[in-house]
Amino acid sequence: MTTSLLPVLAEVLPLALGIALSPLPLVAGVVVPLSPHGAARGFALLAGRLLGVLAVVGVVTALAEYLAEVGGGDASAGVGWARLLLGLVLMVLGVLKWAKRPRGDDAEKPPRWMASLESLSGPRAFGLGFLLSVANPKELAFGAGAGLVIGSSLTGWGPSVAAVAVFGVLACVTVALPPAAVLFGGERARPALGEVRRWLIRNTATISAIVLLFFGAILISNAFA
């Protein structure tokens, strides 16, 4: 174990990117700011999502640190097998998502649940952001992978807390951009966000499958590196 923060952040950066590119939060992050009072509700969604990501990564980090201490500071084998398992789970989810992706006209239809996002209150937006982070198997796999790396690599609570915080910020940056655009750009930002919304509707399943397969492969390749 080490106290060097930058190498650990470099190792978990792909996992943060995987969370940042998760399609459902991306869609919610674009649709909610387009509603009335959208900027405030978008930031409420962001707050819930950030809290959820920090909770998942923080819990797994603490558990990994505890296991490393119990194992005399050498938990590399257990962490390697955990990364391998998480990578395989992501690969399987990616294959299933690719096989079930909508085609043709079905890919152009907005999901039914998307209409409900436009009428979310601030507290409901916060709750949705939290739920998207802690109740989605894909999100949990990415967050658990990051927690395993951080908890098994860093010594001391200070570096671990800093790593978890930086990871959370990076993982949520894509949900932060749309409400910030509405807040500072006003009505000028809405047409661009509308185009992004339509593009995401057409490509959500494809993006999800590619993200799962790509980052699952990364976890597997780094399992015992």
Score class of each variant (00 low, 15 high):
residue 1 M to V: 14
residue 1 M to Q: 10
residue 2 T to G: 13
residue 3 T to R: 14
residue 3 T to K: 12
residue 4 S to M: 14
residue 4 S to Y: 11
residue 5 L to Q: 05
residue 7 P to L: 05
residue 10 A to P: 04
residue 12 V to L: 11
residue 15 L to C: 06
residue 15 L to F: 07
residue 15 L to Q: 07
residue 15 L to K: 04
residue 17 L to E: 00
residue 18 G to V: 02
residue 19 I to R: 02
residue 19 I to E: 09
residue 21 L to G: 01
residue 21 L to H: 00
residue 24 L to V: 14
residue 28 A to R: 07
residue 29 G to F: 12
residue 29 G to A: 05
residue 29 G to L: 09
residue 30 V to H: 06
residue 31 V to A: 14
residue 31 V to Q: 04
residue 32 V to R: 03
residue 35 S to G: 11
residue 36 P to N: 11
residue 36 P to V: 15
residue 38 G to S: 11
residue 40 A to Y: 04
residue 47 A to P: 06
residue 49 R to A: 15
residue 53 V to S: 07
residue 55 A to F: 15
residue 55 A to T: 15
residue 60 V to Q: 05
residue 62 A to L: 15
residue 66 Y to M: 12
residue 67 L to Q: 11
residue 68 A to I: 11
residue 68 A to M: 03
residue 69 E to I: 09
residue 70 V to Q: 14
residue 71 G to A: 06
residue 72 G to A: 12
residue 72 G to C: 10
residue 73 G to V: 06
residue 74 D to T: 10
residue 75 A to N: 09
residue 75 A to L: 13
residue 76 S to Q: 10
residue 78 G to M: 09
residue 79 V to D: 00
residue 79 V to H: 03
residue 79 V to M: 02
residue 80 G to N: 08
residue 81 W to V: 12
residue 81 W to R: 02
residue 82 A to Y: 03
residue 84 L to C: 00
residue 85 L to W: 01
residue 86 L to W: 04
residue 90 L to T: 03
residue 90 L to A: 01
residue 92 V to H: 02
residue 93 L to H: 00
residue 95 V to W: 04
residue 95 V to A: 04
residue 95 V to K: 00
residue 96 L to S: 03
residue 97 K to I: 01
residue 97 K to H: 06
residue 97 K to P: 00
residue 99 A to G: 06
residue 100 K to A: 14
residue 100 K to H: 13
residue 102 P to C: 03
residue 110 P to R: 09
residue 114 M to A: 15
residue 116 S to T: 14
residue 117 L to C: 11
residue 119 S to K: 13
residue 120 L to Y: 10
residue 120 L to D: 04
residue 121 S to M: 11
residue 121 S to G: 15
residue 122 G to P: 00
residue 123 P to D: 07
residue 125 A to V: 08
residue 127 G to R: 07
residue 128 L to A: 03
residue 128 L to F: 09
residue 129 G to A: 03
residue 130 F to Y: 10
residue 130 F to M: 12
residue 132 L to Q: 07
residue 132 L to A: 04
residue 133 S to W: 08
residue 135 A to V: 13
residue 136 N to I: 12
residue 140 L to V: 14
residue 141 A to R: 01
residue 144 A to I: 12
residue 146 A to M: 08
residue 147 G to N: 09
residue 148 L to Q: 05
residue 149 V to A: 11
residue 151 G to E: 10
residue 153 S to C: 09
residue 154 L to D: 03
residue 155 T to I: 13
residue 158 G to V: 15
residue 163 A to S: 08
residue 168 G to L: 07
residue 173 V to Q: 03
residue 175 V to K: 01
residue 179 P to A: 04
residue 179 P to K: 04
residue 186 G to P: 11
residue 187 E to D: 15
residue 188 R to G: 13
residue 190 R to K: 14
residue 190 R to N: 03
residue 192 A to T: 09
residue 195 E to M: 02
residue 205 A to F: 10
residue 206 T to C: 05
residue 207 I to L: 15
residue 208 S to Q: 13
residue 208 S to N: 13
residue 211 V to C: 08
residue 212 L to E: 14
residue 214 F to M: 06
residue 217 A to Q: 00
residue 219 L to W: 01
residue 222 N to P: 00
residue 223 A to H: 09
residue 223 A to L: 09
residue 224 F to Y: 14
